[in-house]
Amino acid sequence: MQIFVKTLTGKTITLEVEPSDTIENVKAKIQDKEGIPPDQQRLIFNGKQLEDGRTLSDYNIQKDSTLHLVLR
């Protein structure tokens, strides 16, 4: 499925993911596309910070959902 990740600069990254993917996996995909190390990434969905060990389906993230990427 496709999800979107919006950065603070207003750029939107499109990712191909599975609901069973962990947040860690998603961060690795963002690193592949953008070169941002996962330990600098914080992903936010519906105002909640997403934890590495959880999956997209844990957070009820579905296709065409938009996550927000904050760098630390």
Rank of each mutant, 00 (worst) to 15 (best):
L43V: 03
P19K: 04
D21I: 07
P19Q: 14
R42L: 15
D39I: 15
A28I: 14
S20Q: 06
L67N: 01
G35N: 03
L8E: 06
K6R: 14
K29T: 07
E24L: 10
L71G: 14
A28E: 06
K33D: 15
K63W: 13
Q62P: 05
L43W: 01
I61R: 00
S20L: 14
N46L: 14
P19M: 13
P19T: 15
G53E: 10
L8T: 11
I44S: 12
Q62I: 03
G53P: 11
N25F: 02
L67R: 01
E34G: 07
Q2T: 12
Y59D: 02
S57H: 05
G47A: 11
S57R: 13
G53K: 14
D64R: 03
S65H: 10
L71F: 03
G35H: 02
V26I: 13
T14K: 07
V5S: 01
Q31R: 08
K63V: 08
K33Y: 14
Q41S: 09
L71D: 11
L69R: 01
E18Y: 14
D39Q: 15
A28P: 03
Q31L: 05
Q40F: 11
N25K: 14
T22E: 14
D64S: 08
I30R: 00
E51G: 04
E24S: 14
I30F: 06
D21M: 08
L69F: 02
E18Q: 11
E18P: 13
K29A: 08
L56S: 01
K11E: 08
I44L: 03
K63E: 13
G53Y: 05
G47R: 04
K48F: 12
T55P: 03
H68V: 02
K33E: 15
S65Q: 03
L67H: 01
N46Y: 06
D52V: 08
I44Q: 12
G35A: 11
Q40G: 09
T55V: 12
S65K: 02
I23R: 01
I3D: 00
D58S: 02
A28G: 07
G35W: 07
R72N: 05
L15G: 00
L50F: 03
S20T: 11
E24N: 15
S20G: 04
E16P: 11
N25D: 04
D52W: 11
E16L: 11
Q41R: 02
R42S: 14
E16Y: 09
T66H: 15
P19S: 10
E34L: 06
L50D: 00
S65N: 04
Y59W: 04
E16A: 08
V5F: 09
T14G: 14
L50K: 00
K48A: 15
F4H: 07
I13F: 15
H68Y: 07
R72W: 10
T55N: 06
P19I: 09
K11M: 15
N25A: 06
F45R: 08
I61M: 10
K63F: 14
N46E: 14
N25P: 03
K48M: 12
L43S: 00
D64A: 13
V70H: 06
R72H: 11
L8A: 15
T9M: 15
R72K: 07
I13N: 03
Q31S: 08
E18S: 15
I13D: 01
T12V: 11
Q31H: 12
K27W: 08
L15I: 08
D39E: 13
I13P: 00
I13E: 04
E51K: 03
T66Q: 05
T55I: 04
R42H: 15
F45M: 12
I36E: 05
K48S: 08
E16N: 13
T14R: 12
V70E: 07
L71N: 15
V17M: 08
F4K: 10
